[in-house]
């Protein structure tokens, strides 16, 4: 059974006359890595600040773990909002010890474990103020995950990271999700990165959630996958159906799109040829999340 971790119901938030969030509904299921996408000022950070109660809720309801949001529920949430923060004059280890005391964690071995997990083992005695931006992001993540949260709320966590830092951060998030079953709500302007890590996407435009879509559906809509051009689509589709569990669409009398990029094209080619189907070409079709976002926003702005 799918367990809802977070549900945001009819939430609105105004700053003076400016409506930052407008009747927003959103829910996260256990195990989701939910990518929140929107331009600057669309309302992504405001939503995250409302979830973590750094911004007082005015209208609507937010439920965490099936109960109305409260301080008790927040104990199961880790977050980095806007920028990672730590006491600058304390070392990495001291900052984590501080969080451990604050959260009532008595197992101090866990601090070393987390330092290793985020790859800061060579910096454990370095003061926070002397860390690079990437290392500060890692410390922020370490602070967020130390209490073993069920939900991680990460606002632009890969801002300022170098390419290798981005790759490592992505791997960290995937490990957290897969090894520790942490549900993640993440926003980023780097859509290629968000695509690689997320399982679902929510698009925010002027404070409204205009679209939610799973990664599979996005790939289908984007027609991402393997484009197979053959002389006999009927026979080819039977072979694909029999040998692969992937979804596919027959586009016309020559082309079939397999909605996955994780199919061995040489193996597929071999199977089709051995069954008497002439293969003209097998090509990767990739439309990006960026294309989808641009089209979505473009349609709205043209209306």
């Amino acid at each position: 059974m799918v367990k809802t971790i977070l549900s945001i119901n009819n939430v609105s938030k105004s700053f003076g006359k400016y409506k930052a969030i407008d009747n927003l509904n959103l829910s996260l299921q256990k195990g989701d890595i939910y990518g929140l996408i929107g331009s600057n000022g669309a309302g992504k950070t405001t939503i995250m600040r409302l979830i973590t109660q750094l911004s007082p809720l005015q209208v609507g309801e937010i439920k965490l773990f099936d109960q109305k949001i409260n301080q008790q529920a927040l104990k199961h949430v880790g977050s980095i909002i806007e920028t990672p923060v730590a006491f600058e004059k304390l070392t990495v280890k001291q900052n984590l010890k501080l969080i451990a005391i604050q959260r009532g964690i008595n197992d101090y071995d866990k601090i070393n474990e987390i330092i290793n997990f985020v790859g800061l083992n060579e910096k454990d005695n370095t003061k926070a103020k002397n860390l690079s931006l990437g290392q500060k992001q890692r410390l922020g993540l370490a602070i967020a995950i130390l209490p073993d949260p069920d939900l991680l709320v990460l606002d632009e966590p890969i801002n300022g990271l170098d390419p290798s830092g981005i790759i490592e951060f992505r791997q960290l998030l995937l490990r957290l999700n897969q090894e520790k079953q942490v549900t993640i709500l993440i926003s980023s302007h780097i859509l290629t990165e968000l695509y690689q890590v997320s399982t679902r996407f929510g698009f925010i435009y002027r404070g409204q959630l205009i679209k939610q879509i799973s990664k599979d559906d996005l790939d289908r809509v984007n027609q991402s996958g393997l484009m197979v051009t053959v002389n006999n689509v009927s026979k080819a589709s039977q072979i694909i159906d029999k040998n692969y569990s992937k979804k596919f669409t027959v586009l016309n009398d020559k082309n079939i799109l397999i909605h996955s990029l994780n199919v061995d094209s040489s193996e597929l080619n071999k199977k089709l040829v051995m069954n008497g189907v002439s293969v003209v070409s097998i090509t990767k079709e990739e439309k990006s999340l960026e294309d989808y976002y641009t089209n979505l926003i473009g349609e709205l702005e043209n209306d």
Binding site: K75, I81, V85, F87, E88, I99, Q102
Partner: peptide, 18 residues
């Protein structure tokens, strides 16, 4: 003072403390 100048209140106030 440091909580507000270094914005570490974000960690403190999201730790579950009222």
């Amino acid at each position: 003072g440091y909580e507000f100048s270094q914005k570490t209140y974000k960690n403190t106030l999201t730790s579950g403390i009222t």
